[in-house]
């Protein structure tokens, strides 16, 4: 594990996911590009949709934390120390942020309302 360079990391991920890795990376790149472009636009969420998205993102984040130990043949009893809890925190954050990001791209709409100006 001593030389985890970006090239090695991609090689390892390719061994894990095969050609599916390129599809995943392609989707991730598209999401990133769309997200960045949208950030420069005026966009808005409908209030009720935003609430649903926040609830879904939280649920996905918590769900990811709950299943992560099980996916590795471990349990919560094996989580020990700052390293493990921080890793689980990162998993939760990634799950939460991913859903939020995807929702922002998929559900937000251009805000065409005229800008309010001071009288």
């Amino acid at each position: 594990m001593k030389d985890l360079s970006p090239g090695t990391l991609v090689a390892i991920l390719h061994e894990m996911f095969g050609f599916f890795l390129w599809i995943l990376l392609g989707v991730a790149a598209l999401m990133l590009v769309f997200g960045v472009v949208f950030l420069f636009q005026r966009r808005r969420f409908r209030q009720n949709r935003l609430q649903v998205v926040l609830i879904a993102a939280t649920a996905i984040g918590i769900g990811a934390v709950l299943i992560a130990p099980m996916l590795t043949n471990a349990s919560f009893a094996n989580i020990h120390g700052l390293l493990d809890w921080a890793s689980l925190g990162a998993i939760a954050l990634i799950g939460f942020a991913s859903v939020l990001w995807m929702a922002y791209i998929g559900l937000s709409r251009p805000d065409r309302r005229p800008l309010r100006t001071e009288p």
Binding site: D3, T8, A11, I12, E15, T72, A74, L83, D84
Partner: peptide
Amino acid sequence: EEHWIPWVIKEKVLKPNYTAMLRGLA
């Protein structure tokens, strides 16, 4: 120190790391 993360490395990461090594890529 005993942690879950080294177990995850053993259980999930070392095999793909190994096969990448066989291909000369790791």
